[in-house]
Design a protein around this nucleic acid. Structure first.
Lengths: 337, 337
DNA sequence: CAGTTTTGCGCAAACGATTGCGCGAGGTTA
DNA sequence: TAACCTCGCGCAATCGTTTGCGCAAAACTG
């Protein structure tokens, strides 16, 4: 920061006090009845030397940072990359900046990120939580506006916006069953996460009493997990299942890779359906059926909610009732099942 | 921030001055010869009330923020999402936090981001520049350590690390020509960007004098651009070209989509090759040949370079000579050409 | 013209940390 | 006993803003 143009400098050069300069440059001139001439003199000098306020000092003094913290379990996962990009764009549009942290599915790193956010005085936090219980998040939420997205906790006072994972998985499983598939393998993501639990529940409920064999395996929203589980499931018997439900697009890629290695043709030998859409599912062969999540909508709601919390927080109002919303996914059928 | 545990609070409760408390808690106890008993008393109280330093205040005083600014032209582009995730992970590993901004290919937004970074006193900046000339970046680089990644400027004193786009495109084009393709269409990304210009140059050079017709069209690293240009090129005549070189994976998706709509089978009717790899190219049908960039390596070099700049900057040393490095891409051949 | 209001602005205290300098008490040396 | 050194710590300035309060001069009132 060679930005040595401080209020004090302008004050010296214009002859006005630091206070006056501050009031002019922060747009509070009339509020404090600064004369027209002073305003002009100061503004001109500020423009001349390219004054830019030191945001750190500003933030220290006002306890506002125009910054929001965003923590996700893995930015390398295209799903969270997309989600992040949506949230960041939304924040940007409102003039807010983003501190981005990656918890890598670790509770500990998540805690560290949330604490760091507080230490830096962010104005609000958007989190895809990885913790198994809500206590810590709730504590944080008492200090700074916080909204959860994509993942959430069962009974919590926190605001969240997620997609209806139960409904999504239910639709997909029901479709498979209606199509006549009889032995369906679900490859799940992080088991403890709410979206995953809801998907499992939806999956099993949809199949219940329909004479369909089913199994749930796996433990991560990753390509590797999809690959490993598909290999394990089909290695002994290529006909072990007649359909696979991948709980994420990454899992799907791993699965497809495994099937091909085993000489199994997806869509023909075994039906395949996925969760999410990262833009390429339509380009695979065959194009992959899937449950698409309205991420843009969820992101918008999350940011809107955060801002209403932030407004209340800022003006010392009581917190508005938590917004806890599930948005509906859509089933997109292609040729893979 | 309900974090009312300040140095002053601990000072009051322990009877030691704020100075002493500060020195103990910032680990400078022996440097300032604080007694063992004071250290213990203060440490215990700090632990008891869960003291955490206010990073904003710290940052104001020390002019260090443990933060690096990262600006990319579009986080929704999987390429930049991946790149960001790599850089963020690297920074994280070194205890640094990331302010992420999206310039959306706009010079103006890029400027705003770079200025915002400075106003917030980041310790360093990593940028994928979109500006057409280096002046502004160089000016910024004089104030705060800055390294460019992926894109760069021709003659500049700034450090950068990029992949050798000339070599990459050359390899790909040469491969196509060797295979006997005679009419090759290149669909490019942002024309003014260095990677794109280098790719065009490599593409044309490789084809030069080999009796191959070639054309370069397009203007963005996006699915839409790939789609539009492929439609335009093949709509009138499905045999207009016998091969397409997509300058990014996003462009490729758009292209494939267009070809299929026109009833053209990629890999059979027309050879296809792409730049980048976002993990799914192997899963398309046919799997897509491509030029892969060693992003992880580039990210690591960029961050290493940034830290050496930051160290010099911090200790007031003269700036080390700029690191300007091109890392080599690899040609990965599959069945699409 | 005295009394009141308005106008225009500055003083100084925050915000929460860091750090150069110095000072008194106790110990050492000659 | 005087001169000096070391220990252990506190004073106060500083980083760059914001803002409550108050004050002098100008303007207005009667």
């Amino acid at each position: 920061m060679l930005n040595k143009t401080t209020l004090a400098a302008i004050s010296e050069r214009t002859g006005y006090s630091v206070s006056t300069v501050s009031r002019v440059l922060s747009g509070n001139a009339e509020k404090y009845r600064i004369s027209q001439s002073a305003v002009e003199r100061v503004t001109r000098e500020a423009r001349r030397c390219g004054y830019r306020p030191n945001l750190v000092a500003q933030s220290l003094r006002t306890r506002q940072s125009q910054t929001v913290g965003l923590v996700v379990p893995g930015i390398d996962n295209p799903f969270f990359a997309t989600l992040s990009s949506i949230v960041i764009a939304q924040l940007d549009a409102r003039g807010y900046h983003t501190l981005l942290a990656d918890s890598r599915e670790s509770e500990e790193e998540e805690r560290a990120a949330l604490e760091m956010f507080q230490d830096r005085g962010v104005d609000g936090i958007i989190a895809v939580p990885v913790a198994s219980s809500p206590e810590f998040h709730e504590e944080v939420g008492r200090n700074v506006p916080l909204v959860l997205i994509d993942r959430y906790f069962q009974k919590t006072s926190l605001s969240y916006v997620c997609t209806d994972n139960y409904a999504g998985a239910y639709m997909a499983a029901k479709y498979l069953a209606d199509k006549g598939y009889k032995r369906i393998l679900a490859i799940q993501g992080v088991p403890a996460s709410m979206p995953n639990r809801e998907r499992v529940r939806g999956f099993l409920d949809a199949l219940n009493g329909r004479g369909v064999e089913s199994k749930v395996v796996g433990d991560a929203f990753s390509v590797e997990n999809g690959n490993r589980e598909a290999l394990a499931a089909f290695a002994g018997n290529p006909r072990a299942y007649d359909a696979v439900f991948a709980f994420s697009a990454t899992i799907l890629l791993g699965t497809i890779s495994a099937l091909r290695k085993l000489g199994i043709t997806e869509g023909k030998d075994v039906g395949v359906i996925s969760y999410d859409n990262n833009g390429f599912l339509d380009f695979m062969n065959p194009p992959v059926s899937r449950v698409e999540q309205p991420l843009r909508e969820a992101g918008k709601i999350a940011v809107d909610t955060l801002f209403s919390l932030m407004e209340a927080h800022h003006s010392g109002l009581p917190l508005p009732a938590p917004v806890q919303q599930l948005v509906q996914p859509t089933l997109v059928i292609r040729e893979s099942c």
